[in-house]
Amino acid sequence: MTVARPPARRPFRLLTMVPAVLALGTLFVAPATPAVHKGDDFMTPGTTGVLNLEAGECFTDPEYSPAAGEEIVLYTTCDQHADNQSYGFVHADDGRYDRVALAAFGWSSCERGFVHYWPGAAGAELDYYPILPTAETWADGDRDIMCVVYDPRGELAGSMLPRA
């Protein structure tokens, strides 16, 4: 009776593989994280957690929460994984809801605060965006626009507001 033998195994030679792995590693360098741009549609007052935020507070980007079954933002201290910081609110005049006009008002109003707090920072280290009322929150009386500062390269390195 003939018994088939498994093919002979060669011992694993880690040292012979190291130069090959190192060579491959130098070929495949991870690209730098691309800058993120957040616009006036990045989040809305309908995103759970946004309406609980006050001026000066830091918070996370919206993330889906399985427990809540929806996207939420979380308050966080500014030195602990903060993606955004509210730096003020502006109040829009009553009237008919006009998203385009409201966005223009939000961007120009938030820009004034941004330039005041961080002169020369536009396009460099920091950027800003407004969180606008939606048609639904407008119908409920929401006229507030939140102005938010963020670092397009990643998390904030503490509170971005200048110390008084």
Rank of each mutant, 00 (worst) to 15 (best):
C58R: 02
E71L: 05
T77I: 14
A68T: 02
F59S: 00
A55H: 05
G56M: 08
C58S: 03
P62K: 02
T48F: 14
S65C: 10
G56K: 00
A67W: 09
P62C: 09
P66K: 04
N52Y: 08
E63H: 14
T77F: 13
N52Q: 13
T77R: 10
P62G: 04
E57A: 07
T77P: 06
C58T: 11
E57Q: 15
E70L: 11
E71D: 14
A68H: 04
P66F: 12
F59Y: 06
T76Q: 06
T48S: 14
G69A: 02
C58Q: 01
L51K: 05
T60S: 12
N52A: 13
P62N: 15
Y64I: 03
Y75V: 03
V73T: 03
L74W: 10
E54S: 15
V73H: 02
T48W: 15
P62M: 06
V50Q: 10
V73Q: 00
C58F: 10
S65I: 08
G56F: 08
T60P: 15
E70P: 08
G56L: 05
A67S: 07
E70T: 06
G49I: 04
L51C: 07
A68E: 00
N52R: 13
T48D: 15
E54W: 11
T76A: 05
P66N: 06
A55E: 13
E63I: 06
E57H: 03
D61A: 12
A68N: 06
T60N: 13
E57M: 11
N52L: 14
A68V: 05
G56S: 03
